[in-house]
Nucleic acid binder design. Sequence first.
DNA 1: CACGCAAAGATTGTCAGACAATTTTTTTCG
DNA 2: CGAAAAAAATTGTCTGACAATCTTTGCGTG
Lengths: 251, 251
Amino acid sequence: MAPQELLRSRRSDYHETLPSDQPQTVIGEAVRKLRMAIMRGDLVPGQKLVEADLCRELAISRASVREALRALQADRLIELIPNRGPFVAKLDLRGVEEIHEVWALLTGKAVARFSQIATADDLAELDLTIQRLKKAVKKRAAIDQLSATNAFFGYILDRCENQVLVGFVSSLVLQVNFLRAQSLRQAGWGLRCIAEIEAIAAAIHSRQPDAARQATERHIGSACTAAKQFASDQDIGPDANAQSAHAAANI
Amino acid sequence: MAPQELLRSRRSDYHETLPSDQPQTVIGEAVRKLRMAIMRGDLVPGQKLVEADLCRELAISRASVREALRALQADRLIELIPNRGPFVAKLDLRGVEEIHEVWALLTGKAVARFSQIATADDLAELDLTIQRLKKAVKKRAAIDQLSATNAFFGYILDRCENQVLVGFVSSLVLQVNFLRAQSLRQAGWGLRCIAEIEAIAAAIHSRQPDAARQATERHIGSACTAAKQFASDQDIGPDANAQSAHAAANI
DNA sequence: CACGCAAAGATTGTCAGACAATTTTTTTCG
DNA sequence: CGAAAAAAATTGTCTGACAATCTTTGCGTG
């Protein structure tokens, strides 16, 4: 009955996928660990969390756990239901679609703008991330692939001079990363991903903001299709306290 | 030295501007009060908050205050700086622009979609909110004007079937509401606002998604211009611990 | 008299322990 | 077996503490 033997340290952040914040406080660290656990899939969507258990796992006080949970709630990674406690957020098909829709909109905007203001250096830098992506795909390294994709869009977002945009996209990515990690393994997706991203890059290179935007929306659209396959189909009625205490395969 | 004699109850939510959540918990209530205080301007942007004071004002424990602050941080209404405590978020010109830019993008999207799927009833309903707006402007009731504007876009957002969109827009509105409240008083803005919103409505009525989107972006664009006049120009260097302990005019 | 530095005072980060209210689980009984 | 009652968990909040980290105050010196 202890479905949470996770949260190991190994802060080797091999795919610090986007979130990079305040590591100096106990709570910040707890947030980081929990985020990781969720993205990695150690914390199953829909799963109920128990504060006391988290205290033990993270070796921190309940007050700190609760603050961390509040922060996670903000990211919509967990839900805090009054008197019932925290649950790992669950995404149904609709949710996945909604997220991808907004994601596409925002990223599309960023890409369009980037294609107008990118310097030669930017373009070169961008191409490097594509090389990285190709390598990852060839090597069938799912994590690296995710990381490289994020690097590609991350680079674009960073230059686009809008922190709000960056923040929102990061938040969205955080929410679907655990699905992306799964869908990446889908046969043939790596290649398709490369093709789509190269299309985006091509449009950027030729300074066609609108084409770039459309290519981006296409890409995220197919990412959505892929992700939906892994979203909780079994989203049965009331609450369906989904378990699966298989918390084993986690160093 | 007690710049925080605020947070009176008066939950007469006359302009429950958008946030409507869990009122059943002490912390939820605290969040609500603090949000109000910020939007109302009782809590000045840049102001440093002291946990102990908030405890007294809100009559709750420090643990609860801290949880509430975490939640507020998520909305970017306050900043939590490690070891220095919470500060009321401050928006510089750039920040205001960024927010409005994303706001325009998201709302534009929502409006465009709405104009495609709106039923006759929807259109009628929408017109009602415009009537409300006109009345508020005629009456020079700034608060009601804000509220009516929010109702207009709120109606649209609600029908557009994307919770993520709604959530993001709400968050953005929350962040600039205190500026909007000020800029609304600007001479002539009421009329302009009506004109712009009617333009949007017209485009929606004639089912022209793209025109509707553009009208929306225009509207939010001028809202941005208006808001910028009240953003912290005096955004001097390091931290500029802006005070103004004028916490008086608050029932 | 400005300036720097150390002592004193505030304030934050975190923890431990308590307790009533509420939810969940178990036991008991018709 | 299913409903009602009793027992066990769990959450919401509070109080009190204490070390670590700011801030402010006060003082000595060039």
